[in-house]
Design a protein around this nucleic acid. Structure first.
Length: 170
DNA sequence: CATTCGATCGGG
DNA sequence: CCGATCGAATGA
């Protein structure tokens, strides 16, 4: 089952949590490649100093202000594409970073492995666009949370927030 | 216009 | 620990 807009139109930390166990799906050469999402991070609004929207709306982060369920990709460190999905109601800038899937460890490896780049930025996470997310099963009691990675610049309060979620399948 | 600095990764 | 690598953001 493809996840619909209402799934993403909720509190971003809840969305980040519920994405664990879901399947990131890419259509390629007539077939579909699926990978279970096992690590995510939430970026929650303009007051979140780790969020790109913390300094207001800019050309880069504008898709975060739009409809939920839309891909937000940007280039980081000049070489890695970060794959995010917009969450929360329209007008509220929030997104979930997909940090890891069963086949790929790390957000940069994930995008590279799937051949993703900026052309997906702003496209809806729908099957028609070739990149979407399907619901999946999850084992109860296997979810963990902790601080986000690489956001020390956000200051002690916001870098310490337990906005990173992962689960153990093994 | 110049400079800084990343939501990273791999190599030494 | 450090370098790669480049566009966005900031400040002069």
């Amino acid at each position: 089952m493809q996840l619909e807009k209402d799934f993403f139109k909720r509190d971003v930390t809840q969305v980040a949590r519920d994405l664990l166990g879901c399947k990131l799906s890419v259509s390629r050469e007539g077939g579909v490649f699926r990978s279970v999402i096992c690590e995510t991070e939430a970026y929650d609004g303009e007051f979140d100093l780790a969020c790109h929207a913390s300094r207001g709306k800019t050309p880069r982060n504008s898709v975060m202000y739009g409809e939920p369920g839309v891909w937000y990709l940007y280039l980081c460190y000049g070489m890695h594409w970060m794959l995010n999905v917009v969450a929360g109601p329209k007008g509220y800038p929030a997104a979930v970073l997909l940090r890891g899937c069963e086949h790929f460890a790390g957000p940069g490896r994930l995008s590279k492995g799937l051949g993703l780049n900026g052309v997906f930025n702003g496209l809806p996470a729908k099957r028609d666009c070739g990149l979407w997310i399907e619901s999946g099963e999850r084992q109860p009691g296997e979810i963990f949370s902790g601080p986000r990675i690489g956001v020390d610049y956000a200051g002690p309060e916001w870098s310490a927030k337990p906005y990173r979620f992962w689960f153990s399948n093994a």
